[in-house]
Amino acid sequence: MSADTEFRVHHDSDAAVGRRERLGVRLLIVADGSFLFGMIFSYFYLRNLNNNGGWLPKGVHHYSISSAWQVAIPFVIAAISHRLGQENKQTRNLTSIVTFVVLLVGGYLQWKQMAHMPFLLTDDGGVVSFNGAYASNWVLMAGSGLFHYFLGSFIALGILIRNRTTDLPHELDLWRQRVVQSWFTWCAIAAVLTALTLSVI
């Protein structure tokens, strides 16, 4: 083809674009869900196996059930707050701030827990290791929770800024909010499932 520009950007209808994006996000949720399923499987598998009594070796501390929920609740709140601001740009001025801040707080709490894990072992050489299979599973789930918070904060920040700077057509705007809603709802569900899992020690 000659170097001549004779093409222009083709804009499909807002609803078509919106639906397409929602499907895409749902498929990514399937992938993420499979990862979560794997983690939950690992947790219960090793718990039931309790190889050599190594699930929670004697004397090892574990996190309390309430601390598991402490890092799940913020995502639920964020998802609800995003939902409240979904339809209306005015309301969203407020809710987007709430969503963002709550996610930051959730991420901070998660981080704090990871920084103070009670089940670490340090040997003479100074090598740190995790004591027991519960500890291993816990850190993996916490890490993946942190990842969700990180990604969620990024998206929430985008919504916050974009709500003030961009002016999308209403229909498209609505679809974009719904797409984000799909993801946030999923993350909230994932957080709750994780907390439920970690409640069975």
């Binding site: 794997g38 499987f41 690992s42 598998y45 090793l46 196996l49 309790n50 190889n51 050599n52 009594g53 190594g54 699930w55 070796p57 090598v127 740190v128 290791s129 995790f130 004591n131 027991g132 299979a133 519960y134 500890a135 291993s136 599973n137 850190v139 993996l140």
Partner: peptide
């Protein structure tokens, strides 16, 4: 890297977990 024990039988892990996943 961080000395977890998913697959280490001494730490309550199991190679069968790996094989399943």
């Amino acid at each position: 890297t961080f000395n977890t024990g998913f697959f280490d039988a001494n730490m309550g892990g199991s190679g069968w977990l790996y094989a399943n996943l």
